[in-house]
């Protein structure tokens, strides 16, 4: 279909080019500036050609051990959340797809969508005193529980739709051959579901790695994640506790893994129109 698509006119090309630049140029400016010497960053006139340096990165990791800790925490919380999201949504999605009529399980899925609609801030207000009371404040486990709960509806929706597309007969054949229910799922359904599982992992990563609000409210020291440290660093520029160079380097380090990741998986994102709605 794409081969015979109409050629874009000059104006249409210019429009697309303008918005491409608007989207990518600000990101490039900051990433490139992270390799600039302070004198080049502070130059009154923006400097395009400069002598590249890794000085900002060595400064960042020397002066901001908190940022390194934040990266480690972000990584741990991201992996934990993916595991918990999948562990809870896979069986649920299977039940929603294969046995919705039993005991009204299918109808109960409506509540998943209802919960997704709650503004995160509205959830953090009561969560903060509750987590403090039961000792889950400033803990990675607490964050993982919250992130997983936030991501369930999207995960279940994606996985349920995929299981719908897998013929029931395949599982039934495995059962007849003597597999138990779990074996049939693991050997037949699971491999066919892998693309969906990868998609869920992608959306969870984008959400958890980048979240600012929940980490801001629910962590204070031990479990602070990279975005919160970055926001701190940005605020410290005015007080002279950090420099633009360090902040650029930190922003680049925090952004780069997910940006590369998005470039690689963009095709997948672009093919999930309906589910894309639940992201964010």
């Amino acid at each position: 279909m794409n081969d015979q698509a109409e050629r874009a006119t000059k104006w249409q090309l210019a429009t697309v080019a303008f918005f491409v630049l608007l989207a990518i140029f600000p990101i490039i400016v900051v990433a490139v500036s992270s390799f600039k010497l302070p004198r080049d960053i502070f130059s009154y006139k923006p400097i395009v050609f400069f002598e590249p340096t890794f000085g900002n990165y060595t400064d960042l990791f020397r002066n901001w051990p908190k940022f390194t800790e934040g990266l480690v925490n972000s990584l741990a919380v991201t992996i934990g959340s993916i595991a918990l999201v999948l562990a809870a949504s896979l069986p649920a999605a299977w039940a929603f797809s294969r046995m919705p009529q039993h005991g009204g399980v299918g109808k109960s899925a409506m509540s998943l969508f209802a919960m997704k609609m709650l503004p995160p801030l509205v959830i953090t207000v009561p969560l903060f005193p509750i987590f403090s009371a039961i000792g889950l404040d400033d803990s990675k486990i607490g964050l993982i529980l919250v992130y997983a709960a936030m991501e369930f509806s999207l995960a279940v929706l994606l996985l349920k739709t995929m299981i719908d597309g897998i013929p029931r007969e395949l599982e039934e054949a495995a059962l007849i051959d003597g597999c138990t229910g779990i074996q049939a799922f693991r050997r037949v359904t699971f491999p066919l579901l892998l693309p969906g599982i990868v998609t869920v992992a992608i959306f969870t990563t984008l959400f958890v790695w980048n979240d600012y609000l929940f980490a801001l409210v629910l962590t204070t020291a031990r479990s602070v994640t990279a975005p919160v440290v970055l926001a701190d660093m940005l605020a410290s520029i005015g007080e002279g506790r950090s420099t633009w160079g360090e902040v650029f380097a930190a922003a680049t380090v925090q952004l780069l893994p997910v940006l590369i990741f998005t470039f690689i998986v963009q095709r997948k994102m672009m093919s999930n129109g309906a589910a894309g709605g639940l992201k964010g």
Binding site: F19, V20, A23, I24, P26, I27, V29, V30, L206, W209, N210, D211, Y212, L213, A226, P227, V228, L230, A231, L234, V247, F248, A251, Q254, L255, V258, L259, F261, T262, F263, Q266, M269, M270, K279
Partner: peptide, 18 residues
């Protein structure tokens, strides 16, 4: 397309920094 959707990959902290 990859460039256009790049801002989706960014945390609020990075958007704010930029």
């Amino acid at each position: 397309i990859a460039c256009l959707i790049a801002p989706i990959a960014m945390s609020h902290a990075v958007t704010a920094t930029i």
